[in-house]
Nucleic acid binder design. Structure first.
Length: 866
DNA sequence: GAGTTTGAAACT
DNA sequence: CAGTTTCAAACTC
């Protein structure tokens, strides 16, 4: 049994730290769950309803990402509907410490096609034995369930719900655990009357008429959402929230309260009753009989309630089997010291995770039932009293529970450990090759089907990340990679970046287990998540496994410095320069990159200018006036120009030199200004947002800490354009996004090159109104660099942005809640030389209106490259 | 399945 | 905020 379990206090350990809020605090999983939609299935145990989570615990961990696009509205909380039957689909359960949660629907349903045991379990001898012991009727088809009885039960349920009413058009009904179809007739499913709409979902398989709650009516839906939010900003928040009673008990209560008049709050008309929560003083109901006292009376005989029951069971199980403790799950360190244990306990994020499919849960349950039956049957033989027999039975059941958990935990962790170790080996290989150390493996049914490590530097391919390399390798080996990926688990040492994560979501990866989080570029949780990519089907995500090891590898890489890293972009500070220095010509790269002014009026010039200046000075100067000194840079010498004392010399000859010197200086400054003009203008525009240029966000710490302004919701619309000469198809993937100031958002454009030649595109952008551009910050954008598209290639181009919280404080923007972001893609042509305006052949004729055809034809214009 | 009851949402 | 209307779910037969 796992060590952590033994030491848990049931009442204190009801919380699972699975989320970090905007202030960096851990938030209880239940809190988070309610915040993001609440459970929509509940299991009743002794009158207490335990959330049975059909959705993933894959929740946005970092409030850095929390925008509210249309797609995300579809993820907005749903009203809980208590359903007492277990779901049909197999699910993955996760255990963290003493808490057990269902994580999410496992894609691909019954894992086993041939018998009662999932392939994962078949590989486990111990669990296999466990299952074989309960497989009592091997000849009866079990359809993937652990027992024939379970299969039969499920089958009957299906029949029951699929029963068609004779002579009538069958109305679509929901299976327990599934979303309920709506029956709206008049609201077009665009009002909160419609449950689908209220739950933030599209209507699917509903009985509604003239439904507009679907992708075809995206605009209408978007308007309706906005309208609902204007009316009530909490319209899409869950009605049933969490309140604490004392230190331990967690209760769900209706936030707004009901207003029932006739039902006595004892029918499902009452929202409180329907949600199985007592009415509170927030309710305005009349003749209410749904008070806490009423409910307590109903369940007065219960000794164990709710989550406490489960936790007590789990803890009892741990204490009954205290002698077998596997090493801490996925931990790399086999020597688990006491100190480590105590730390682990203090930091719930470091708890190991374990996984159970529905089949395993079912099997474990049946094992416990078998134990109970055995205990009862032995009652007579041992001549026990009723109480003694029950006590004995309880002990045996609990012990069996512990055994089951022990076997499951031991098995799943060692497998995961093995695959992750392989990923780290690949990462080490990358590190040895001077690549960013990231490695990954794709595992299907316990077998490695793909592997990869970062190969960016060698291939000069910025997309050659470990995951992409692995997928490309898989494409060579398998015909239908997408099909395989849907059944794959990815083990990777570092959180996949936005690109890889987005791709993996698109390809339908089933599960990801990764080491360190990638706070700046991580596309799984750090800066992106499934919702952001408009992915409705959650995938299972486990992070922070061997994070420290992953980080150490990255540190090792950056410590030895990346030989392929681009040139230093930071401005070089003047060091040890004489006060008398007027002008410094620095190295070429710096000049090329930063043609701008430094605080002391030091002019940094373009390389050719610098060379000219250097030559001129050589011609002019004597050793008294100019000297060359070795630069701090090893590659390019800089020239130090001494002015003090040397200039303003002695005699006519020196005066002439001075005059020439000043003339040259003015010329140099003028040329410098010319070179500096374009970047300076750009810097000016960026700083002032003149012309709608937006800001580029670089202070990631500030972004992580900024707080969103709840009472302002800004509509950001997206526009795209391509000139007629550019043959790309370029458009935004969403027309608009609603975002609060201080909240990050991710939008996508899509570009396709339908031609049969590669085209390099470069985009320009513009934001209107200009005043808003000052507050519009791009964290990452495809416009930052050129994009190349091969023939027929299509890519999604991300824009990751946020609106500065100060937007809400700007009086000029008080009534401005609409922003339009426009992009235009131009074709970038290397080697293209624009016609020189100084070439007499290119000068227009005097009368512009009467330019002769011959003159036009004779103009010397460089042909455009094909 | 048709009709009725109910209370939340929407509207005035 | 209160009263009325609209709406879809819950309920009854």
């Amino acid at each position: 049994m796992n060590g952590e379990l033994v030491e848990h206090e049931p009442d204190e350990e009801q919380m699972v730290y699975s989320h970090v809020d905007s202030e960096g605090n851990f938030v209880e999983a239940d809190d988070v769950y309610e915040e993001y939609g609440g459970a929509d299935e509940y299991i009743e145990i002794n009158g207490q309803f335990i959330a049975h989570r059909p959705q993933s615990m894959v929740l946005p961990r970092n409030n850095v990402m929390a925008s509210t696009s249309q797609a995300q509205y579809s993820q907005i909380p749903r009203q809980p509907r208590p359903i007492s039957l277990p779901p049909r689909e197999p699910h993955v359960f996760a255990m963290r410490g003493s808490n057990m949660f269902r994580l999410e629907r496992q894609q691909g349903t019954p894992a086993s096609q041939s018998g009662s045991v999932s392939p994962q379990l078949q590989q486990s001898s111990s669990t296999g034995e466990l299952l074989s012991s309960i497989k009592t009727e091997p000849d009866i088809p079990t359809n993937g369930y652990a027992s024939a009885a379970a299969a039969e039960f499920m089958s009957r349920r299906q029949e029951l719900y699929a029963k068609k009413a004779p002579g009538n058009k069958m109305k679509k009904r929901s299976l327990p655990g599934q979303r309920k179809p709506c029956n709206c007739t008049k609201s077009m499913c665009l009002k909160l009357y419609c449950d689908c709409f209220a739950n933030g979902e599209f209507c699917r398989d509903c009985n509604c008429k003239d439904c507009h709650n679907n992708i075809q009516y995206e605009d209408d839906r978007s308007r309706a959402i906005k309208q609902s939010l204007e009316r009530n900003p909490n319209a899409f928040k869950p009605k049933i929230g969490i309140a604490r009673s004392g230190n331990t008990d967690i209760e769900r209560l209706h936030q707004k309260g009901c207003h029932c008049k006739k039902s006595g709050c004892l029918k499902n008309y009452c929202e409180c009753y329907e949600a199985k929560v007592p009415c509170t003083d927030r309710c305005k109901c009349k003749g209410c009989q749904n008070t806490e006292m009423d409910r307590a009376g109903k369940y007065k005989d219960s000794t164990l309630r709710g989550a406490s029951a489960l936790l007590s069971l789990a803890n009892a199980a741990t204490t009954s089997i205290s002698d077998s403790r596997p090493s801490s799950g996925l931990s790399n360190n086999s020597e688990d010291t006491d100190e480590r244990d105590s730390n682990t306990e203090k930091n719930p994020r470091s708890f190991p995770w374990f996984y159970m499919t529905d089949e395993v849960v079912e099997a474990a349950t049946l094992c416990m039932v078998a134990q109970a039956e055995e205990a009862l049957s032995s009652k007579g033989a041992n001549r026990q009293t009723e109480a003694e027999a029950l006590e004995q039975m309880e002990k045996l059941v609990i012990r069996e529970f512990g055994h089951c958990l022990d076997q499951i935990i031991g098995t799943s962790s060692s497998k995961d450990r093995q695959h992750l170790e392989r990923a780290f080996t690949l990462a080490q290989e990358a590190l040895d090759c001077d690549e960013v150390p990231v490695g990954c493996v794709f595992v299907r049914n316990g077998e490695e089907v793909g592997y990869g490590r970062n190969d960016v530097n060698r291939t000069r391919d910025p997309t050659a990340h470990a995951e992409m390399v692995a997928i490309r390798r898989m494409e060579e080996n398998f015909e239908d990679v997408e099909l395989i990926l849907r059944e794959c688990v990815l083990y990777v040492t570092l959180e996949p970046c936005v690109m890889c994560a987005s791709g993996l979501y698109q390809l339908g990866i089933r599960k990801m287990i990764y080491g360190a989080e990638n706070a700046r570029f991580g596309g799984v949780r750090s800066v992106g998540n499934a919702e952001k990519y408009k992915m409705k089907d959650d995938i299972e995500i486990v992070s922070g496994i061997d994070a420290e090891r992953s980080i150490q590898m990255l540190k090792a890489f950056y410590d030895k410095q990346n030989p392929f890293a681009p040139p230093e972009k930071r401005k070089i500070k003047k060091k040890n320069l004489d006060d008398t220095v007027d002008c410094v010509v620095a190295d070429e790269k710096l000049i090329a990159k930063f043609c701008c002014f430094t605080p002391n009026s030091t002019v940094i010039l373009a390389p050719k200018t610098a060379q000219s200046l250097s030559n001129a000075l050589r011609r002019l100067s004597t050793t008294n006036y100019c000297s060359t000194t070795p630069s701090s840079s090893k590659t390019t010498p800089s020239i130090r120009w001494l002015s003090s004392g040397g200039i303003g010399g002695r005699g006519a000859k020196r005066k002439n030199r001075d005059a020439m010197f000043y003339v040259v200086s003015i010329g140099v400054v003028a040329i410098g200004l010319t070179f500096a003009a374009i970047p300076a203008y750009r810097i000016f525009c960026e700083q002032t947002s003149f012309g709608g240029l937006t800001q580029v966000a670089k202070d990631f710490e500030k972004i992580a800490q900024m707080k969103k302004v709840e009472d302002r919701l800004i509509r950001v619309q997206f526009n795209s354009d391509v000139p007629s000469s550019m043959r790309w198809e370029f458009k935004p993937l969403q027309h608009e996004i609603y975002v609060h100031p201080g909240e990050t958002a991710l939008a996508f454009y899509t570009a396709r090159n339908p031609t049969d030649r590669p085209i390099v595109g470069i985009s320009s952008y513009n934001l209107t109104p200009f005043q808003a551009a000052y507050y519009f910050n791009k964290i990452q954008c495809f416009c930052f660099e050129e994009q190349i598209l091969n023939p027929g290639e299509q890519v999604d181009l991300p824009v990751f942005f946020f609106i500065d919280p100060d937007y809400a404080n700007d009086p000029a923007l008080e009534y401005l809640d609409n922003i339009l972001l426009s992009y235009t893609f131009f074709e970038a042509k290397s080697g293209l030389q624009l016609p020189s305006p100084f070439d007499p052949n290119n000068r227009p004729a005097v009368d512009l209106g009467k330019v002769s055809k011959t003159v036009k034809e004779e103009r010397h214009v460089q042909p455009m490259p094909a």
